[in-house]
Design a protein around this nucleic acid. Structure first.
Lengths: 162, 162
DNA sequence: TTCGCTGCAAACCTTTTGCATTCGC
DNA sequence: GCGAATGCAAAAGGTTTGCAGCGAA
């Protein structure tokens, strides 16, 4: 088992690779590049941890870039997902769909402290393999999964036995 | 690995046990029993597979019982969850929160065909145990999880290679 | 008689959509 | 200049809430 790589690590070079990747993707689809879209992409790529559409609007604004309209963010997000710059994630309900960077990151799942909300990422190859076995034995070809664990973290445990 | 017990199996005696359980729970909380709430509970308990709030409204109506207002269903559902007659489930997004019966059912997770939408339940003890290991090694006491697999079922596989 | 329960309508929140305008190629 | 991208406002969908009246203990 390993803790997944830290979510906040995409340097300036990585950012450029990602934007270039996006440009190529957009070109390939016969669409056009745009400044606004790249602002949104930049904010998404550099966002630490998970974010919602609304948070992304705020992020873009805070980065000094010109304002982005929420509707535009909602239109850009699926494109970034399709380009595999970001992924949708669950990280358990709450308000709105959450996303996180996918570009130059390895697959991981999440464990969430139900007391303080802390999210830790993990990747456990044995579980990944067993999922394949389950799928196969039920006659499915596995294409993806959602896996979130809930619990109480070591910091919260002493405080309250839920 | 086992396929989980079939979701549709709660006989009349089970239903009565469930309703009695609900009445005790309601009494314990200092609330009152009501016919409407029991209609909703009955529909939820006898519903085959997963359901949304909206579907539950329809179910109640179709069972010949008097009409239930959606707002009431939305108020009853959390109570049924708290009483552990039903659970919230994911079964991947779509419109609205989904539920399924929990009363007198064993824990299970889901695998979903992304082509035809078929849902198969499974329980794989080895995965359950490994989840515990993951949590422990990250300093968490595990209290729950969401686990859904996606794939293409054997019926859909020949038709379309996604 | 006292509260909780229910229906109704309105509010809410996130996301989507139609349209006119702006911008990139 | 053509067509895609954007902002804006309105709509859509699911869920919540305030309130008045009904119903259970």
């Amino acid at each position: 088992m390993r803790r997944a790589s830290h979510p906040s690590m995409l340097g300036p070079e990585g950012l450029n690779r990602a934007l270039e990747h996006l440009r190529a993707f957009v070109r390939r689809k016969g669409l056009k590049s745009s400044l606004v879209r790249e602002s949104v992409a930049r904010a998404a790529l550099e966002h630490v941890g998970h974010f919602t559409a609304e948070e992304l609007v705020r992020s873009v604004r805070e980065r000094g870039a010109e304002d982005v309209h929420p509707a535009t963010v909602y239109r850009v997000l699926p494109l970034l997902v399709e380009a595999e710059l970001i992924h949708q994630t669950l990280v358990s309900g709450g308000e709105g769909q959450r996303y996180e960077r996918a570009f130059e990151r390895e697959h991981h799942d999440h464990i969430i402290c139900s007391s303080c909300g802390k999210v830790v990422e993990f990747h456990f190859e044995a579980i990944e393999l067993l999922q394949n076995d389950v799928a196969k034995s039920l006659g499915f070809r596995l294409t993806g999964h959602i896996h979130e664990l809930f619990g109480v973290c070591s910091a919260c445990e002493p405080l309250a036995r839920t």
